[in-house]
Design a protein around this nucleic acid. Structure first.
Lengths: 162, 162
DNA sequence: TCAATTTCATTAACGTGTTAAATATATGAG
DNA sequence: CTCATATATTTAACACGTTAATGAAATTGA
């Protein structure tokens, strides 16, 4: 390779000279570790969702509607952990595809109420068993109790701010 | 709980009739828990990065260049956990802003070599201390050892596929 | 040597993430 | 009741994520 001067000085030019200013190693960083773990998990689900022609976020939305019935947009944003602007787009797309219906709340004209449509229920019925199977396979391989422990630790991390 | 025959029938219309088809509760799902945890962590860093006018991904890239010196795009994609198409855009933007430089590899014309520029080093010097401080605050509040445990568990989850 | 294959990077197209601003409706103080 | 303020949703603008396709350079094997 590129042996710039006399000997192996690959880092010389860009080196900080001392490590105090350098951020700690990328591989032991919480944000990236969380990203990697999440991607590894989603890699199991994504191809299956793609076969059913829905995205991960669309799946979260219709799944919550199937669980919870009629839900307004704010509540949905909260439960599905999707920001309002993204949710607006996702709702539009799901409605156009006939998977959900949308109506104004009669008591509060600002609110948008969402409900799953029969077509959406069909998707739930198709995807749920496969999703479940994938999750259980994952749980088994990682260890059921360790998943619980991990979920608790993640929850606590997510709630550090309160 | 869900006694859904005679009384309280809010969910009847959208109910599946039996719970076997329903996905398990959203709040105990690994993908969302990982997302929530990651967002909670990033919420601490994002405002600081925004003040320095860089995104999280741009920060990962220049930080890796500061750590590792000259790096080609594939290696960068790997280390920063950024997909190639995103990386192409990020590299373009960082180069336009003068934070990095880019050259073709003389030995392999397909490869693109990246290096941090002085302007990029300035950003590193500005952001690193703040980043470190935020991370250490976080580590302290969550518990140093628990962070280590969590990182190990996340790593194992990310490597289940191998 | 050269055609087929593989690898690296980019482009394209679409969906989502993120912040700020705009719009519409509700609510509350006077 | 009315004006100011607060809340719910949408729009806008830009960056990134994701998959597939393209272009260019390297590698392989006949």
């Amino acid at each position: 390779m590129s042996d710039r001067t006399a000997m192996s000085r690959e880092k010389t030019k860009t080196d900080l000279g001392h490590d105090a200013l350098l951020p700690h190693n990328t591989r032991r960083s919480l944000p990236i570790a969380l990203l990697r773990a999440r991607e590894a998990v989603m890699a199991h689900f994504r191809p299956m969702l793609a076969r059913h022609d829905i995205t991960e976020q669309q799946w979260r939305v219709i799944r919550i509607l199937a669980e919870a019935g009629r839900v307004d947009a704010s509540e949905m944003a909260d439960k599905a952990f999707i920001l309002a602007p993204s949710l607006t787009r996702i709702i539009r797309s799901l409605e156009e595809r006939g998977l959900i219906t949308k109506h104004k709340d009669a008591d509060d004209g600002r609110r948008v109420l969402l409900e799953i449509a029969p077509e959406g229920m069909r998707v739930i019925a198709d995807v749920s068993p496969e999703s479940r199977a994938i999750y259980e396979e994952l749980e088994t391989r990682y260890g059921r109790e360790r998943v619980e422990v991990l979920l608790d630790m993640l929850d606590e991390l997510a709630n550090l701010n309160d």
